[in-house]
Design a protein around this nucleic acid. Structure first.
Length: 646
RNA sequence: GCCGUUGUAGCUCAGUGGUAGAGCACUUCCUUGGUAAGGAAGAGGUCGUGAGUUCAAUUCUCAUCAACGGCUCCA
């Protein structure tokens, strides 16, 4: 007999070799029907796997992340079985569950055959058929030679490659119906639990994520324990699409692009430009308070500067090619730092001048790969909320922390809550390739950055191989509505460029020292930040950011003169106002203004004109009643100057 | 850059081997209407671009450009 401890602390005895599923059955049939996997001493197991010794057991259902992931991973196997039935000879690589987007995929080599989206319906049908057979997922431990033999017979180089990296004793096969796969597991008890599947798209994916390797076919899908849940999921995706910044950006007249201008080159329309100017105003105020000085630098520079900075060897491919004049090569700048370093170097610096903080909304150009361009989030001309802080090692902690505090201040203003702070570290094996070869400095600065995060009490994740070539950084990761991850803001340490540019200051002991440099962009770029805000607010900008803050809607043209005087009074108070003077009924004017997500509407008719009042309507909320124009102006001006969220 | 999909009016989309349609937007007229679409008329497209097949191509084929879904990349 073995003792099983449950999450509530209860302990019960069972015969050794009992499965999690049978334990669940002993508690209730209803529970057993929902069990997808079992957590055994903290490890996720097949619910059907025998438990041979005392253990703490928790049942994983659809309500657990690990339950869902097991379900989706098993769905990937089910899809593979269907693919094998319809595309005989297919060879599989890996098929994991994914959280973002929710679901699973499987990478496969179809040989000479091609899969198109038309095949997906047939595959779904086959999957449903196979699911109805309710085949058990059967786990089998196999020896390494046995596994090699099996996949050699199948002429499957991919699984053989996987087996090569595994140790004898760690290798398991899973079989459901007629399909056997090398897999670590775990899996759900049987295919019958998968009641609804949707294969969403086909994509190419490089083998092992390396573009030098062959490109495999990746099929994405998602599955649920009921059709209802699948429908709800698909409806949610449809809803999300309505918040897509590319859709809203067009509808609200924020930005446009044009083939004749070029890929990834944004033209800001008047509405978008208002938002840019408000953001810049906020940044300039904030940076002024924080002791930054503003600078302005050119859009181009000679090759020699990018050789000095060390950018060219790393990024030549993603810079616009140089223009050659008078035997000199000039590049469009793809970062502002070298120019800023030159400003630091322009006058001799003493330790008394440090920290030296210079800020610029710098325009940079990056020749991003065409396939990477994505609305406003990934573009080729961007405006960075850039600044560089040159400081001593002793000052670093305070300076770096102040930058972090600046983020948090901004995030509060914008109501940004869903983000991940990422401590981006280097990879030691890529020193000298992707990262400057200074192992000690890497260690030292990474510790410094980590400590700042810990001291600030900010939750963060550490990720290797995400640092800049010149030092570690903190990235603020956000997700677009379609689930793509982006760095919104960044705060970076640079122990390298100061030396490359021979930047120096005179220390108290009269010795020349090299400053540390902080590169920071708490508001990222206008492009990405506004793209993010569009999605975050679903186009309903807070009043201070709204391109048009108040729309004045006369009931008929009899009241146009009064409407004009209201508009003028609003404008004089610094409020962005427009009159809707179209020959339309009030219902139509309201509808159109609602759709343009203008925060305030002032309905003007006979009564209002006679009494010098306005009837206020708030976008998305409806009629707020009548008040005097002065009162409305005072309230709205306050809402704007305080940058109120609602 | 790679794999796949798409490309018709300003926008959203239908359609066809015999040189194109809807709704909204736009223009004009009627209407002067009190909180999410008043009515009528009109104008607007060499069907992304180039080549090929054909008596004939927006439709079929190829190339190219761009957008979209991924992969890779992201200072």
């Amino acid at each position: 007999m073995i003792n099983i401890t449950f999450p509530d602390g209860a302990v019960r005895s069972y015969e050794a070799g009992i499965s999690g599923l049978d334990i669940a059955k002993s508690i209730s049939e209803g529970l057993a029907r929902k069990v997808l996997a079992a957590s055994v001493d903290g490890e996720v197991w097949d619910a059907t796997r025998p438990i041979t010794k005392d253990a703490a057991v928790r049942f994983l259902t659809w309500d657990d992340v690990d339950g869902k992931k097991t379900f989706w991973h098993s769905s990937a196997h089910l899809m593979a079985e269907a693919v094998e039935a319809l595309f005989p000879g297919v060879k599989f690589w890996v098929g994991p569950a994914t959280e973002n987007p929710a679901g699973f995929y499987y990478d496969m080599d179809l040989g000479d055959r091609k899969m198109t989206e038309e095949d997906l319906a047939a595959l779904e049908k086959k999957m449903n058929e196979l699911a109805k057979q309710n085949n058990a997922y059967v786990r089998k431990e196999v020896s390494k030679p046995e596994a090699i033999q099996y996949f050699t017979a199948k002429e499957d180089p991919y699984k053989l490659d996987l087996i090569g990296g595994l140790n004898d004793g760690d290798i398991t096969f899973y079989t459901q119906g007629g399909f056997t796969d090398l897999c670590r597991g775990p899996h759900i008890p049987s295919t019958g639990l998968i009641k609804a599947v949707k294969l969403t798209n086909i994509a190419g994916a490089y083998w092992k994520g390396d573009e030098k390797n062959k490109q495999l076919t990746r099929v994405y899908g998602v599955s649920f324990p009921s059709q209802k849940e699948l429908d709800a999921h698909l409806a949610l995706l449809e809803e999300a699409k309505k918040r897509d910044h590319r859709k809203l950006g067009k509808e609200l007249g924020i930005y446009t692009m044009d083939d004749d201008v070029g890929q990834g080159l944004i033209m800001w329309l008047p509405n978008g430009t208002v938002i840019i100017e408000e953001l810049e105003k906020l940044a300039k105020e904030t940076e002024l308070e924080a002791g930054y000085k503003r600078v302005v630098t050119p859009h181009i520079a000679k090759e020699s500067m990018y050789l000095t900075s060390g950018h060219l060897p790393y990024y030549a491919d993603s810079m616009y090619p140089p223009m050659e004049l008078d035997g000199e090569k000039y590049y469009l700048k793809s970062m502002n730092c070298p120019h800023h370093h030159k400003i630091f170097a322009a006058e001799p610096k003493s330790y008394r001048d440090l920290p030296f903080r210079i800020a610029e909304y710098g325009t940079v150009y990056r020749y991003e790969q065409s396939g990477e361009l994505f609305g406003l989030m990934r573009v080729r001309c961007l405006h960075m909320n850039d600044a560089h802080i040159y400081c001593t090692k002793e000052q670093f902690n305070d300076e770096f922390r102040a930058v972090n505090d600046m983020y948090l201040k901004y995030f509060k203003i914008f109501g940004i809550e869903k983000y991940v702070m990422r401590l981006s570290l280097h990879s030691p094996e890529k020193l000298g390739i992707k990262y400057v070869n200074e192992p000690e400095l890497w260690k030292e600065t990474e510790t410094m950055v980590r400590n700042v995060l810990i001291e600030s009490g900010i939750p963060f994740v550490e990720v290797q191989d995400e640092a800049a070539f010149y030092g570690p950084k903190i990235d603020v990761q956000i997700y677009s509505v379609i689930g793509r991850e982006f760095t919104l803001a960044t705060n970076q340490v640079d122990f390298s460029q100061g030396r490359s540019f021979k930047l120096q200051y005179t220390a108290q002991d009269n010795k020349a020292e090299t400053p540390l440099i902080i590169h920071r962009a708490p508001l990222g770029t206008h492009e990405r930040f506004i793209g993010f805000l569009l999605e975050q607010y679903a186009g309903r900008f807070p009043v201070w950011l709204a391109p048009v803050q108040v729309k004045v809607l006369p009931i008929s043209d009899k009241f146009q003169d009064y409407a004009r005087s209201v508009e003028l009074a609003l404008k004089k108070a610094g409020i962005r106002a427009e009159v809707d003077d179209r020959n339309e009924k009030i219902g139509k004017k309201i509808r159109d203004t609602e759709l343009m997500k203008v925060p305030y509407m002032l309905v003007i008719g006979e009564k209002e004109m006679n009494e010098g009042k306005v009837a206020v309507r708030r976008q998305g909320r409806g009629d707020l009643g009548v008040k005097s124009l002065e009162e409305f102006i005072a309230e709205t001006a306050a809402e704007i100057s305080e940058r109120r969220a609602e």
